[in-house]
Design a protein around this nucleic acid. Structure first.
Lengths: 219, 219
DNA sequence: AAACAAATTTAGACAAGACTAAAATATTTT
DNA sequence: AAAATATTTTAGTCTTGTCTAAATTTGTTT
């Protein structure tokens, strides 16, 4: 059995690996809220357990075994997020923090029951794909909203679940996965991006727009 | 925030206090599966936090603050047990171990949602009363099955949730809380107790019968 | 290419919570 | 009531996961 700490590190490594390619000590340090020194000492332990490969002063990489565990935890996390929303009506900005704790103590049996209850879902409430039990996961082509040219009709694919305040704002304007909207303009001087949905225009900050993934809608 | 360990100790102290009156180091040691020395050192910590009172070589007692926390954890535990059974169909012999882990990471908000979903229930799947949010709990008069005289019609009130095998046996013969049955006989030489329900007779070991609480049915 | 800055690792300390072995106290037996 | 036994506590150690401060390596300037 792996400790909650180890599971958290593996998950963080997976996420950094996916979003940035390279996994540096400082990236993990910031993501996990621990000191760089703590990260290094955990990296040593994970190397010994053959869950990652680590070259001193270069980054870190998951081994297949490490990746499998990371995906199991992420599967727990995302199933729980969706379950809490569907079964108990927890708002989408709150499901993340609840899942963050529960994911580490979910049994395989309960995982299967939840999966079945939800009808073997493919994405969580934020549009993130749910890894399958066998450790595979569907990857979709999509762009960050911040990179989309004005006058494009897009469909929201995924929204990062890490900032509850952003999620509340987006929920408030009706912006969810599957929502279609038009990018109206990008204000100059790093100003906000203006999108139009349900006939109204809303501003979305450049920084927030990095965390909203969209695909071009075939209009 | 209290550690999971501290919560487990407080819960164990509450349970021993309720079932045996005196709370000894050795009782906690056995219940928690840790050495007596570990118990003593934790007792020191809990005393400093004013959650228990501890007289050297005499036992230990919960303070009102300690009892409140113990009851909060037990409330979590029992709500979760019932929720898992009702919402996800987890069999009653498995809900305990799942709740044992989840109880420590359940938020107040989710606790309330589950409570509401279940219609503000009063007992868990084993018939144990669920403490209310304010720390009060209904106590019922009942006898251990092992102490009941033959030829009595009784109603099952509560069954201990600690032995999955016993629960599977009892479930198999249809013995649940609320079930009515007749104590037919007590076999000599510490032999089993014979009960009759749904027209059939079943043996129940003396030891198991200590953990089945019943009340006389007004027949 | 040397100097500076940034990132990473090492060294050493600490808190929590467990352990074993030995000492102290209670309890039971004779 | 003294001896024997059982229980509890103390003393000291270990592991996990964190920290700070200092040393090392890498990357970036000039």
């Amino acid at each position: 059995m792996l400790s909650q700490s180890i599971e958290d590190y593996l998950k963080a490594i997976y996420e950094v690996e996916t979003s940035e390619g390279k996994v540096s000590t400082s990236a993990l340090s910031e993501k996990l809220g621990v000191s760089p020194a703590s990260v290094t000492s955990m990296m040593k332990k994970l190397s010994e357990k053959k869950l990652i490969t680590h070259k001193r002063y270069q980054g870190v990489k998951l081994t297949p075994a490490g990746r499998k565990i990371a995906l199991e935890i992420i599967r727990h996390h995302r199933l729980i997020e969706l379950y809490l929303k569907e079964a108990l009506g927890v708002p989408w900005d709150q499901v993340h923090q609840e899942a963050e704790k529960w994911e580490h103590v979910l049994s395989e049996d309960l995982e299967d029951r939840i999966d079945k209850f939800l009808g073997y879902p493919v994405t969580d409430p934020h549009g993130s794909p749910i890894p399958r039990r066998d450790g595979t996961m569907i990857v979709r082509e999509c762009d960050a909203l911040v990179d989309v040219e004005p006058d494009t009709l897009v469909r929201v694919v995924e929204v990062s679940d890490h900032d509850p305040e952003l999620l509340r704002y987006l929920g408030g304007i009706g912006l969810y996965p599957e929502t279609e909207m038009t990018v109206v303009s990008k204000q100059p001087f790093k100003g906000p991006i203006i999108v139009e949905l349900t006939g109204k225009e809303y501003p979305i900050g450049r920084n927030a727009a990095k965390y909203i993934l969209v695909e071009k809608a075939n209009n």
